[in-house]
């Protein structure tokens, strides 16, 4: 029993675990209050850059360009329910992996349209960031 406990601790410490939570993020999120200063038709592009930094992408448009700021958040949960069977003699030789997992990916984009006069035409969020949450089972909404 004492050796089994040592083995469990050793496996936990070596990363061979039946359960994992993993989070991946790209950049930092922007919020509505971060773009409250933007007054379409008046705010200069230089002011946007000064406050929000360089965008992740620039796309030309017929009247100027669209600057896009990206944020990505991923939450992944996995559990292998068959993992304990690996310690039961004859059963351990048979396939016994029973994995449940769920990955939520949230993407947030801020698009800032800039005209030929280098003034902001509009700034709008396109986000589905709520999707990035840990869920224990891959069923339901």
């Amino acid at each position: 029993m004492r050796h089994a406990w040592h083995l469990v601790v050793a496996l936990l410490l070596s990363g061979c675990t039946p359960i994992t939570w993993t989070r991946v993020t790209l950049n930092q999120p922007l919020h509505a209050q971060d773009i409250r200063f933007i007054d379409p038709g008046r705010t200069q592009w230089a002011e946007v850059v000064r406050r929000l930094g360089a965008p992740g992408e620039l796309q030309p448009t017929p009247t100027g360009f669209v600057a896009t700021y990206f944020y990505l958040d991923t939450a992944d949960f996995d559990v292998d329910l068959g993992w304990p069977l690996g310690f039961i003699g004859p059963v351990s030789r048979a396939p016994h992996r029973m994995e449940l997992g769920d990955t939520g990916i949230g993407v947030e984009e801020l698009e800032v349209a800039v005209g030929a006069d280098l003034r902001v035409q509009y700034a709008v969020f396109a986000d589905s960031n709520d999707a990035a949450r840990f869920k224990p089972v891959p069923v339901g909404d």
């Binding site: 994992t20 939570w21 993993t22 989070r23 790209l26 965008p55 992408e57």
Partner: peptide, 17 residues
């Protein structure tokens, strides 16, 4: 970074125009 069952991966980009 990974510690036991927890992992976190942070990515950031520097774009220069």
């Amino acid at each position: 970074g990974t510690f036991l069952v927890f992992s976190r991966i942070n990515v950031a980009g520097d774009d220069t125009y």
